[in-house]
């Protein structure tokens, strides 16, 4: 069934609620304004998404919104449109998932043919996802965990590496907020790596980052090691995530950590590994040769975890691990 459109009165009411809610958080307010201009009917979702956040999480969201707005730059309006388009894409995937209990594709050949090789699709997809880090409770909460929990563990001055860095947001946050000194970005796609480079240059971090075309399945013994390795929203795209983890464990320096974000029940056109319980994520890490030190489950719109699992509502699991 279609959801009833908002009346003008309801829209005005939601806008003033959002304004009050986001007072003193100018970047979050600006991003929200941009998105509701492009998509007024989304105000209801955003009001719920912000209403369930603690003041500390709203502060994190505001600081991430500042970075996201800088990255979106002159294309902020188009980025908001792309976010709306992304949500439409996901709704289609959610419908397919509810009907079949499976993700649409299961091999890299399929996602490569239908998603990765489509440049226009990928560009809009990446833009949309950039905003999701602020606008979706699940993603904002996982970033809050990333900043809060890793700050307590990571030694300042170290070196990090992220595989599949995309828009470079986590690298930027690790360099500026976790006290890490140097970052390396790995990707198998030169186009994606160029995007990360452009993003980090734009954010003024270019001199502290290096870039390499590197397949994580092909790491050789004795290769460079890192104090922190990030695999954020990566494992669900791989055909053999356990094999990849077994390889990458050798690149974690002594006393270093692996940080993983991996979703449960999150149908997206390029997800091929369906996990449906946090235990599945823990098992994947353990089979890959890691010991899980901390795990947090961030549910869609802060639904209770049992309800989210029962209803197959998307959850992001954030995990801090070390090699066994």
């Amino acid at each position: 069934m279609n959801l009833p459109g908002q009346t003008r009165e309801r829209e005005n009411q939601l806008m003033s609620t959002l304004e009050e809610m986001l007072a003193g958080r100018p970047h979050l307010a600006k991003l929200t304004h941009l998105v509701t201009e492009a998509w007024p009917e989304h105000a209801d979702y955003l009001e719920k998404s912000f209403d369930v956040r603690t003041p500390a999480l709203l502060d994190t969201s505001d600081s991430v919104a500042e970075v996201v707005l800088r990255l979106a730059g002159d294309h902020a309006g188009q980025t908001a449109q792309d976010y709306r388009w992304l949500c439409d894409v996901i709704r289609e995937e959610e419908l397919n998932f509810a009907r079949t209990d499976a993700y649409r594709y299961s091999t890299f050949a399929e996602t490569n043919a239908h998603v990765y090789s489509d440049d226009e699709f990928m560009q809009r997809y990446m833009h949309g996802l950039l905003l999701s880090h602020v606008l979706w409770y699940m993603h904002a909460s996982s970033l809050h965990f990333f900043l809060g929990r890793l700050a307590a563990r990571v030694k300042p001055g170290g070196k990090m590496m992220e595989v599949g860095s995309g828009h470079g947001l986590l690298i930027y946050l690790a360099l500026t907020r976790l006290g890490l000194e140097e970052a390396v970005a790995w990707d198998i796609s030169p186009v994606s790596l160029d995007q990360t480079r452009a993003a980090l240059d734009q954010l003024g971090m270019g001199e502290r980052a290096r870039y390499a075309i590197q397949d994580m399945h092909q790491i050789e013994a004795g290769s460079e090691q890192f104090d922190l390795i990030i695999l954020s929203h990566l494992l669900e795209h791989l055909e053999a995530p356990v094999d990849a983890l077994q390889k990458i464990r050798h690149a974690v320096a002594k006393g270093g950590y692996l940080f993983v974000n991996v979703p449960l029940n999150a149908p997206m056109p390029d997800h091929i590994q369906l996990l449906s319980d946090p235990d599945d994520a823990v098992k994947m890490l353990e089979d890959g040769g890691f010991r899980v030190l901390e795990i947090a489950s961030h549910t869609t719109q802060a639904a209770s975890l049992p309800r989210a699992l029962k209803r197959k509502i998307a959850v992001t699991c954030s995990i801090i691990a070390e090699p066994r």
Partner: peptide, 22 residues
């Protein structure tokens, strides 16, 4: 009755509602 009458009726639960009926 529409989605406006039920608190938990949002875009995501709407999909589950439609598929449960199917």
């Amino acid at each position: 009755m529409t989605a406006a009458d039920i608190e938990e009726w949002d875009s995501l639960s709407n999909i589950r509602f439609v598929v449960a009926i199917e």
